[in-house]
Nucleic acid binder design. Structure first.
Length: 503
RNA sequence: UCCGGCGUAGCUCAAUGGUAGAGCGGGUGGCUGUUAACCACUAGGUUGUAGGUUCGAGCCCUACCGCCGGAGCCA
C-alpha cells in the first residue's frame, strides 16, 4: 500500500503502475551492462527488478559499488515489462544507500548445512527460508483460528514446572531459587486439564522442551506444540476433531501458498489427497500389519526398486560429473556441481535407508504385542496409506499414567496417534484421560510415582470429574511434512538441536 | 554412549604418496535489456589439531576436536 510519501512495497507494486514510488529493502542480486544496471531489490514482500540507466548519473554511480544485502531506498517509476521477474519493474531515478555492503557471506548458490546453520540469522533472508516462514505463519494462524472459531479458550500453561509430566521423558533442569531443580515443560497438558474443567474447551500453544540426545532429522530440543483439551469428550470425538483440524490447516496452506510450495519443490498432490475420513486402525491391527506377509512382500519389492534407483542415481552422478568436467561456463559447472552434491546426498540417504531396511524388516516380523511402536514401525505402517492414519489403543504399559484404559479391554488405553504420510512420522498424540480418582491413584502407585506433587491434579478427579481428553500436535513436524522438508531444522527460525545453540 | 561419513581459499568442491587447483563470491577494466548475464585480468591457503610411517603426506596410520547421518531415546 502506497503512503503519502510515495513509499510502497513490492507486493502491491501493480497498484503503482505509471507513478513514481519509493521501495525500501535489501539488494538481493545485481547484473550490469556498461550503461545499464539491474538491481534485484527484496523487501520481504517480494523481489523487484530496478533498472538504473547511466543517464541517471548519481543513481548509476551509487549502484555500481553495491554488494548483496546492501540496504537501500530506491525511487523510480513503475512500469509493466515482461522481461522483469514478477511482471513489473522500476525505472530508477534515485538511490539512497542506507548501508553499503560488500562481503555478505551467503551467496546465491548452495552452501553446506554447518555453514548455513552458523549463519542462520542471515540464512533467514533467502527465498526458500522466507517461504517456509510464511507457511509456518499460515499454519499457526490456521491452527489458532480453528480452535478460536470453535469456542475454545486459549490457556497459557507454565514453562517452568515442578515435576515430569509424562514420567519417562528427559527434561531440562533449571535452578529455581531455593526450591532446587525444576524443569522446562514438555507439555502443557496437565495444567490444561485444570482449565478444561473451568472452561470446557481449551487449548494451549507454546514451546516445549525435551532433553533427549536425539540427533535425527525429526528432533528438536525446543519445539512448539498446540494442545486442545475438551470436557465431555471421548476418543472418537478427539479423532473427529483431529481429522477436521488437519484437513483445515492443510487446506489453508494449499489456499494461500501454491507459489511457496512450488518454490520449495513440494508436490502439492499428496496434500490434496488429505481429506476425511483418515484410516483408523488399532495398535493390534498395526501389529498384524507389521507381521503380515503383505507388508513384507511389498518391502522386498521396494528394496529391489530402491536398489535399482540407487544405481540409476549413481550413474546419473557419473554422467553429470562428466558434463561438469567438459563444461566451459563457470556458472554451469556450479549448477551441475550443485545437482551432483544433492544427488550424492540422496544417494547417501538411500544407502543408509537400504542398509537399515533388513533390520527394520526383521524387527517388524519379530514385533511382539506390547512393545511400543517406534519411528521405524510407524513409517512402515504409514507407507500403507496415502493419508494421515490414526493408530489407537496402545498397550497401557507403554503409555502415560493419565491415559484411560479401554472399558472393553483394560490392557489397552483410549489413545490415538496420527502418523503423517510420506515418512514424516507422528504429528499428533492424544488420549482420553483417566477421570476416575481411584483408577488414577492406583495407576500412579503402580508406576511408583510420588503422589505429592500431583495432589492438585488428583483434585481434578475429586471435584466434578468428567470424561475428557485432548491431543497435542507438533508444529515443526507438521511444517516439515507440509513443506516436504528433509530436515526439521528449517521449520523453525532458530532451531535448537543437540550440540547447537548458536545463533 | 555406539556405528558410519566428512573436515582443502570467504563459499561449493577437485587434486595415483611427487610443483595445492577450478567455479562462485571479492577487486580492476569492458559492454544499454540483463534473468545465478557475459568477456578479460587479478588478489586470495599453516589442507581441523597433535603425533607417526615415508626420500617425500591434502592423501597412509594413531589420538583428539568439529560437523553430518544413523542406532539407542523420543514428538
Amino acid at each position: 500500500m502506497q503512503n503519502m510519501a510515495g513509499i510502497t512495497d513490492i507486493k502491491s507494486l501493480h497498484e503503482s503502475e505509471g507513478s513514481e514510488v519509493t521501495l525500501r529493502g535489501w539488494l538481493y542480486g545485481k547484473r550490469s551492462g556498461g550503461k545499464i544496471a539491474f538491481l534485484l531489490l527484496r523487501d520481504g514482500t517480494g523481489v523487484c527488478q530496478c533498472v538504473v540507466e547511466a543517464r541517471e548519473e548519481r543513481a548509476f554511480e551509487a549502484a555500481s559499488g553495491l554488494g548483496q544485502e546492501s540496504s537501500l531506498a530506491v525511487t523510480g517509476t513503475i512500469r509493466k515489462d515482461d522481461r522483469a521477474p514478477g511482471g513489473y519493474e522500476m525505472l530508477v531515478s534515485a538511490i539512497d544507500v542506507i548501508q553499503a555492503v560488500d562481503d555478505y557471506p551467503i551467496a546465491r548458490k548452495s552452501h553446506g548445512v554447518d555453514f548455513l546453520m552458523n549463519h542462520r540469522h542471515l540464512w533467514l533472508r533467502s527465498p526458500r527460508q522466507t517461504a517456509i516462514l510464511r507457511i509456518r505463519h499460515t499454519l499457526v494462524r490456521a491452527m489458532r483460528e480453528f480452535f478460536d472459531e470453535r469456542d475454545f479458550t486459549l490457556i497459557d500453561t507454565p514453562i517452568l514446572s515442578p515435576g515430569a509430566a509424562e514420567g519417562a521423558g528427559t527434561l531440562f533442569p533449571v535452578r529455581y531459587f531455593d526450591e532446587g531443580e525444576v524443569n522446562l515443560a514438555q507439555t502443557g497438558q496437565l495444567y490444561l486439564e485444570s482449565a478444561c474443567m473451568a472452561l470446557g474447551k481449551v487449548y494451549c500453544f507454546g514451546p516445549t522442551f525435551r532433553a533427549e540426545k536425539s540427533k535425527t532429522r525429526r528432533h528438536l530440543t525446543e519445539f512448539w506444540m498446540i494442545e486442545p483439551e475438551i470436557a465431555f469428550a471421548g476418543l472418537d470425538d478427539l479423532m473427529d476433531l483431529a481429522e477436521e483440524f488437519i484437513c483445515g490447516i492443510v487446506d489453508a496452506v494449499l489456499d494461500k501458498h501454491r507459489g511457496d510450495l512450488e518454490l520449495l519443490g513440494r508436490d502439492p498432490a499428496p496434500l490434496e489427497k488429505v481429506a476425511a475420513p483418515f484410516p483408523r486402525i488399532t495398535y493390534s491391527d498395526a501389529v498384524d500389519i507389521l507381521r503380515g506377509d503383505e507388508l513384507h512382500e511389498q518391502l522386498a519389492a521396494d528394496l529391489e526398486s530402491d536398489r535399482a534407483r540407487l544405481q540409476e542415481m549413481i550413474d546419473e552422478i557419473t554422467a553429470l560429473e562428466d558434463r561438469r568436467d567438459r563444461s566451459r561456463k563457470g556458472w554451469q559447472q556450479d549448477k551441475l556441481e550443485e545437482r551432483i552434491q544433492s544427488l550424492r546426498e540422496e544417494v547417501r540417504d538411500l544407502d543408509t535407508d537400504i542398509a537399515n531396511r533388513p533390520a527394520h524388516m526383521r524387527d517388524a516380523l519379530n514385533f511382539k504385542w506390547g512393545q511400543d511402536l517406534g519411528g521405524d514401525e510407524e513409517t512402515l505402517i504409514s507407507r500403507q496409506f496415502d493419508k494421515p492414519v490414526f493408530i489407537t489403543e496402545y498397550p497401557r504399559e507403554v503409555k502415560a499414567f493419565y491415559m484411560k484404559p479401554s472399558p472393553d479391554n483394560p490392557g489397552v488405553v483410549l489413545n490415538m496417534d496420527v502418523i503423517a504420510p510420506e515418512g514424516y512420522g507422528e504429528i499428533i498424540g492424544g488420549s482420553q484421560r483417566e477421570d476416575d480418582y481411584d483408577a488414577l491413584d492406583a495407576r500412579m502407585l503402580e508406576e511408583g510415582m510420588n503422589r505429592e506433587p500431583y495432589e492438585w491434579y488428583l483434585d481434578l478427579r475429586r471435584y466434578g470429574s468428567v470424561p475428557h481428553g485432548g491431543f497435542g500436535l507438533g508444529v515443526e513436524r507438521t511444517v516439515a511434512w507440509i513443506c516436504g522438508l528433509r530436515h526439521i531444522r528449517e521449520t523453525i527460525p532458530f532451531a535448537r538441536l543437540m550440540g547447537r545453540i548458536y545463533p
